[in-house]
Amino acid sequence: METHTLIALMEDKPGVLHRVASLFRRRNYNIESLTVGHSETPNVSRMTIVLNGDDRVVQQVVKQLSKLINVIQVLDVSDQPAVSRELALIKVTAGPGTRTEIIELASVFRARVVDVGANSLTVELTGPQSRVNSMIGLLHPYGIEELARTGRVAMVRAGNGNALL
């Protein structure tokens, strides 16, 4: 079982997200995260899907996704040099005794403090999933009150034959 990252371009039509989600459920694929938003082309959405599975399963996923009429293209970028990022908003318990410590920790991770309350701080971090995970791990002892993660978005690096469209 490896983690794979797929990029899918699809027509921006009602129901497309449901079609994709329904496919994953129907075929019993193990999906870790799914993000969707506009692409550079009008009326074309871009989806990044992170899933676990062996090569055979992932090949099936790529083919099954491609088979959806509204899906224009699917690319497995797992083996390509790619930039992949995730954004996390972390509201962490922070009183007068721990606030400075947390802010310092955040700066080590190049995270930003986006909200400060009397008893908490909200930190915004963008980075590879591993960095998001380690920061969450380090903040855990302080008490994480709320956590929101976007899931991964990915883009193949320049000059590496991005086959999309």
């Binding site: 009602p14 129901g15 449901h18 079609r19 329904s22 496919l23 129907r26 009429i69």
Partner: peptide
Amino acid sequence: TGITHPITKHNYL
């Protein structure tokens, strides 16, 4: 359309 997504080749509302 939601119900028949997995049992049609495609569908339209």
